[in-house]
Design a protein around this nucleic acid. Structure first.
Length: 666
RNA sequence: GCCGGCUUAGCUCAGCUGGUAGAGCAACCGCCUUGUAAGCGGUAGGCCGUUGGUUCGAAUCCGACAGCCGGCACCA
């Protein structure tokens, strides 16, 4: 008489099964529909294979495609395995490595055969085809527990050096499993679907290829990665591809060109040429941020673009970041007729990669009393960093950028209050742009300066400040990120969520005790002795370049009226209305509205289309009728509302509210 | 920096296996005075990224370099 296992189901019922029984057996016992729909099982909360026998009494929940998160994870992981098998079928000699699921699909990293070279996009269609064949074959996926030695031996015998290396390094005590699909197998923790046929042949697509370092380390071999997107059914795949197309339409590089905001060119790659319309956005943002910072007790300064290398040596940047700094010889003249003239003993200078050392130098002028603290020094600081070329990306990653930077010099006791106040300032700013955001605390990295006690303290201060602001909650996406901090301090990060759900890290505040020490910043305390201030580095936009890029993508170019470079266009229908159009425009301009007129000899359809594509918030159409009646026909961009005819003053009153910056509205 | 791809008119893109370039839109010039997302006709516009090579001949084939795109790594 064998012992029976008691399996509890989510509805509260309990089934008794023989040892050796599996979740699949239970699904079958409940009904054929469920047996077919079941993808995997949660056994005591752990996601498991449908065919893995119970090991004792257990709580069981069968996972179907209705459990979307689990189902997608399973399906994507399976697609990755099928991809690996397909590639090995088509390209014998290819080594497999890793293939996880991602946010929208999966990838797998391969080491292609020595005589083949990396995979290219041209390979993708035939790999997809092979994947469909594998799915159609409907091969069962079987879990097997192997010993480490078996694994290493098997992979070595099959020329799988990467897998063998990995198997040798897996932590002791872990159950090592392989999943077998017919003749093919991969070492994998699982779980997997019961068979390849559970995948939909039309719900995935291989999207791109790229290089990726083995184990993510630049020092290692470059592998060939194949990305795919994978879903539960064809409809989801189509929706996803559609979302990608929509996202591409928001691309700030494309909109920046179409809207004539800025351009980039080879001769200054990684630095932005702002055009009048783009710089108008910048100026509005800058004016807004100045008001916010003035109002929050910051004082703005301006510091040198170029400083002597000795200064950077002292601050520590020379040692750590010299590779990414633009360095120039301090020699006059530095050219001669026969070429460059740079002597051996030249002094070096560097363009500033950040503002903080200069701010410490300002702080150090004169003697500071504890009564003066906190001192908040702000700067719209233009910095240069010689970024790795492969990292450059439109406005999002540039070599010259301007930060809404500030450093708060304060006492230990003032840290929490200053950080708390910053949380509130950042909150008002992000809300003014309609962003939701989450706050993360990036904790100590492996490589760092300072003692563990200092780190304990610094982390706790930031944590407390966010708690005191009432923002260390789920509502604010509060989360701690181990290992993500800067080498000198933990940092709080603000991650914006844009209109299509992408996140962007923009704001930050971090406490720094290292730099004041290195640059010997001090204040005189109550006791008459010298003390080190703590320095809080902080920014809200991050950089103007990147923030504008994010705004363009967030609004899909349709900036709110207060940021729109041109807020209204007066477009005529007939030339008889030209004078009236000029009159209307003059009136708006006198009220501070950025307005243009369009009196070209074109049909109104044409003008409407053009200004709509240019994302002008308001189009005021004037014809004979409006000229006679003193009205305008208002067409608001992106509004479903039908154009309406209204008096100029009424319209102006309405637009003035919208055209004012959020902090200037009543 | 690493892997792959790309680079032709202001923009978007054609140009097969080598015979010194083509479209649409934009621009300019006319006609049309127009009522809410492209009126019609015409004209002009190109060192085919740069540079070496192969060839009688290169936008086209090969190499180097640069920039861009997608990733990887990096992001004080």
């Amino acid at each position: 008489m064998t012992e029976q296992f008691k399996i509890s189901l989510p509805d509260g019922s309990v089934r008794e099964v023989e040892p050796g029984a599996t979740p699949a057996d239970i699904a079958a016992a409940i009904g054929p529909g469920l047996a077919k729909a079941a993808l995997a099982a949660r056994v005591d909360g752990e996601l498991r294979d449908l065919n893995r026998p119970f090991e004792g009494d257990a709580d069981l929940a069968l996972v179907t495609s209705r459990d979307v998160d689990d189902a997608l994870e399973l399906v994507r992981h399976d697609y990755a395995h099928v991809l690996a098998e397909a590639v090995q079928n088509l390209f014998p000699g290819t080594q497999i490595t890793f293939g996880p699921s991602t946010d929208d699909g999966f990838y797998y990293d391969f080491a292609p055969p020595a005589d083949h070279g990396p995979f290219t996009e041209e390979d993708l269609p035939k790999i997809e085809e092979e994947m469909r064949r594998i799915i159609a074959r409907d091969t069962p996926l079987e879990r097997e527990v192997w010993t480490r030695q078996q694994l290493i031996q098997w992979f070595r015998d099959n020329g799988e050096t990467f897998k063998a290396e990995w198997a040798a390094e897996l932590p002791e005590g872990e159950e090592l499993t392989v999943y077998r699909a017919g003749d093919w197998l991969d070492m994998c923790r699982g779980p997997h679907l019961a068979s390849t046929g559970k995948l939909k042949p039309d719900a995935f697509k291989l999207t791109r290829v790229s290089g990726a370092y083995w184990r993510g380390d630049q020092k290692n071999a470059m592998l060939s990665r194949i990305y795919g997107t994978g879903w539960l059914d064809k409809k989801q795949l189509k929706e996803h591809l559609h979302r990608l197309e929509e996202a591409a339409k928001r691309d700030h590089r494309k909109l920046g060109r179409e809207m004539d905001l800025f351009h980039l060119q080879e001769e200054a790659h990684g630095s932005v040429f702002w055009h009048p319309k783009g710089y108008r956005i910048w100026r509005e943002l800058e004016a807004y941020m100045r008001r916010k910072m003035d109002g929050a007790g910051y004082r703005e300064i301006k510091t040198p673009q170029v400083m002597d290398a000795r200064q950077w040596e002292q601050s520590g940047h020379w040692g750590k970041y010299r590779e990414n700094m633009f360095v120039i010889p301090d020699e006059v003249p530095n050219t001669a007729d026969d070429g460059a003239l740079v002597s051996d003993e030249v002094d070096w200078m560097a363009l500033k990669p950040m503002n903080c050392p200069a701010h410490v130098l300002v702080f150090k002028q004169g003697i500071t009393s504890y009564r003066d603290l906190p001192i908040r020094l702000g700067e719209m600081g233009c910095c240069h960093r010689n970024e790795p070329h492969g990292a450059l990306h439109g406005l999002m990653r540039v070599r010259q950028f301007t930060q809404d930077d500030a450093h708060i010099f304060c006492t230990e006791e003032q840290i929490v209050e200053e950080v708390r106040a910053f949380c509130e300032l950042a909150d008002t700013v992000y809300k003014d742009f309609g962003f939701t955001y989450s706050i993360k605390l990036a904790l100590r990295p492996e490589q760092r300066f300072g003692s563990d006690e200092d780190w304990d303290k610094a982390e706790e201060e930031l944590r407390n400040a966010v708690r005191e602001a009432g923002m260390a909650t789920d509502e604010f996406g509060w989360e701690e990120l181990p290992g993500e901090g800067a080498f000198y301090a933990p940092k709080l990060e603000w991650h914006l969520t844009d209109a299509i759900g992408r996140t962007w890290q923009v704001g930050t505040i971090q406490s720094d005790r290292v730099l004041p020490e290195r640059l010997d910043a001090a204040y005189v305390g109550e006791d008459g002795e010298k003390h080190r201030p703590v320095m809080l580095h902080r920014a809200i936009f991050g950089s103007y370049e990147r923030f504008i890029g994010i705004l363009i993508e967030h609004f899909a170019g349709r900036l709110p009226a207060w940021l729109a470079p041109v807020q209204a266009v007066v477009a005529t229908i007939v030339s008889d209305a030209d004078d009236y159009a000029a009159e209307v425009a003059a009136k708006l301009a006198a009220a501070g509205i950025r307005v243009e007129t369009d009196t070209r000899n074109e049909k109104i359809n044409y003008k409407v289309r053009e200004h709509s594509l240019a994302k002008v918030p308001y189009l005021l159409v004037v014809g004979k009728r409006e000229a006679e009646e003193g009205t305008v026909a208002v067409r608001k961009l992106g509004s479903d509302e039908r154009q309406r005819v209204t008096g100029v003053d009424e319209f102006l009153a309405e637009l003035k509210g919208e055209a004012a910056a959020p902090d200037h509205r009543g």
